[in-house]
């Protein structure tokens, strides 16, 4: 009786790594909760030859579904590293149009949090919420 050799070696245990798309979708959903759905978060996914891109977007239903793009995250086959484009220059540390490279989930969360809690983003959210009341 022959036994099959294990050529795989020891399979690494599954780590609790959350992909950028999961994190962005959570935050998109959170925005709706926080604003009683006055503002709705959305993640648009596009694919090109070698990479996948996700755009985190705010939609304002009462403004004829006006859309405001907050950031874009792009990665290749592996979830990390991921490049983040801060569309509205909310982070003082980032130069305009240059992507911010995040090597792992922790770095990605830090950058996304920086953008979402920035003064610029909060001013935009306040401005959009004000428009919903007109």
């Amino acid at each position: 009786m022959s036994t099959t050799d294990n050529l795989w070696g020891e399979i690494p245990s599954q780590q609790e790594v959350r992909a950028p798309i999961v994190i962005l979708r959570e935050q998109a959903s959170k925005l709706g909760e926080l604003t009683n759905m006055s503002l709705v978060g959305n993640v648009q996914i596009t694919r090109d030859y070698a990479s996948i891109s996700m755009i985190l977007r705010i939609i304002v239903p009462s403004l004829d579904n006006y859309e405001y793009d907050v950031l874009k995250a792009t990665h290749e086959a592996l979830s990390y590293p991921v490049k983040v484009y801060d569309f509205n220059d909310t982070l003082a540390t980032a130069k305009s149009w240059e992507p911010i490279k995040c090597e792992n989930e922790v770095e990605f969360i830090k950058v996304v949090k920086g953008i979402l809690t920035s003064e610029t983003t909060h001013k935009v959210i306040a401005s959009l919420l004000a428009q919903t009341k007109i």
Binding site: I55, D64, Y66, D69, T120
Partner: peptide, 26 residues
């Protein structure tokens, strides 16, 4: 009304003649 800063759009048309559809950074 425009939440973006990269482009400034002004008009001499009545205020509501310009309606925002989408802002995507640039």
């Amino acid at each position: 009304f425009s939440p973006t800063r990269r482009l400034q759009i002004l008009t001499s048309l009545p205020f509501k003649s310009l309606r925002p559809i989408h802002d995507a950074g640039s």
